[in-house]
Amino acid sequence: MKVFVVLVSALASVSAGILPQVVPVPPKNRISRPSIEGRVTNGQNAVENQFPYQVGLSFSGSEGSWWCGGSIIDNSWVLTAAHCTSGASTVTIYYGATVRTSPKFTHTVSSSNWIQHANYLSLTLRNDISLIKTPSVTFSVAVNKISLPAIASSYSTYAGQTAVASGWGLTSDTSTSVARDLQFAHLTVITNSVCQATYGSLVVTSKVICVDGSNRTSICSGDSGGPLALDGTLIGVTSFGAEDGCEIGFPAGFTRVTSYLDWIKTNSGISA
């Protein structure tokens, strides 16, 4: 389950610290390659209604089409990644699906209905967050919102805690299409300083949250924009992983939701 930033090759050759030692890439640009020992990632199949806040997002634009995830945060709003909305003209939102192609219902909206962070920077995935305004949906056991973190949580790093990522992304580095069944994985949050050793501080800022990938359980292409949840609260939006693969053991990065609570409230009116 993972996502990516294409950084110019010159950046990759610079020493660690500020600049990355491992290059992150956008899922729509990632090329599948053989995985270590051919192992699949260690996610699990979700059961019906386990993640009612999870939506699938099928984007279309001049560059083609691509699949992302998102989180319902209100009857009329979905939160996802800016690298998912970037370059797209329309999106079809899949609600209440466990089997990806069998949602309870769908809505298709145009780019005029989303708000991409004005300071999104694709080079380093800075401010990788977008809001999608949707037709109002009626909540049910299959379709429901996830809570945003309390403002009081803004100072929490979450390091050492176990969160849950979900999505229909690739289940291995050799996969060529997104998953049929919704997958989830328990992932341990690591400190930003540990994550910076891999991706550098230009990518891993205070507005990023990282998880450990050493057991080869991770996010992958197609999971972009999807949720990282802790105790029923949305703490991260799937943003990036290593260019070389989802199973190679490097950390994965998420946009830190607590850093964008004011932005979310200003643009949608939603507060924790």
Rank of each mutant, 00 (worst) to 15 (best):
V3T: 11
V5S: 15
V8I: 13
A12W: 10
S13H: 07
S13E: 15
A16I: 09
I18D: 03
V22G: 01
P24N: 08
V25E: 05
P27Y: 15
K28C: 13
R30W: 13
I31E: 06
I31D: 00
S32I: 01
I36G: 04
T41W: 01
N42W: 07
G43T: 04
A46V: 04
P52L: 02
V55D: 03
V55A: 10
L57C: 09
S60V: 10
S60M: 00
S62G: 05
S62C: 05
E63Y: 14
E63H: 14
W66H: 07
W67I: 15
W67K: 15
C68W: 05
C68D: 01
G69Q: 08
G70L: 07
G70V: 00
S71C: 08
S71I: 06
S71A: 07
V78N: 02
T80L: 01
A81S: 02
T90H: 09
T90Y: 05
V91N: 05
T92Q: 04
Y94E: 07
Y95G: 06
Y95E: 09
V99F: 09
K104H: 10
F105L: 06
S110R: 08
W114M: 02
Q116A: 12
A118I: 14
L121I: 15
S122T: 06
S122D: 07
S122I: 01
L123I: 12
R126C: 13
R126T: 07
R126W: 09
D128R: 13
D128F: 02
D128E: 09
L131S: 00
K133T: 02
V137L: 08
V137Y: 02
F139S: 11
S140I: 00
S140E: 06
S140Q: 04
N144F: 00
I146H: 07
I146K: 03
I146Y: 00
L148Q: 01
S153Y: 08
S154A: 15
S154G: 07
T157P: 05
T157V: 12
A159K: 07
Q161H: 05
T162E: 11
G167F: 09
W168P: 04
G169Y: 09
T171G: 03
L182K: 02
Q183W: 10
F184W: 12
A185Y: 03
L187I: 11
I190G: 10
C195F: 10
Q196G: 11
Q196H: 11
A197Q: 15
T198A: 12
T198E: 13
Y199W: 10
G200F: 06
T205E: 01
V208M: 11
V211R: 06
D212G: 06
N215R: 05
T217R: 03
S218M: 06
S221K: 14
G226L: 08
P227I: 05
L230K: 04
D231T: 03
D231G: 13
T233I: 14
T233K: 13
G236E: 06
F240R: 04
E243D: 10
D244W: 15
D244E: 14
G245R: 01
G249F: 11
P251T: 13
A252R: 08
F254L: 14
F254G: 15
T255W: 10
T255F: 12
Y260V: 01
W263H: 12
W263E: 06
T266G: 12
N267Q: 02
S268P: 08
S268D: 03
G269S: 12
I270N: 00
I270P: 00
S271K: 15
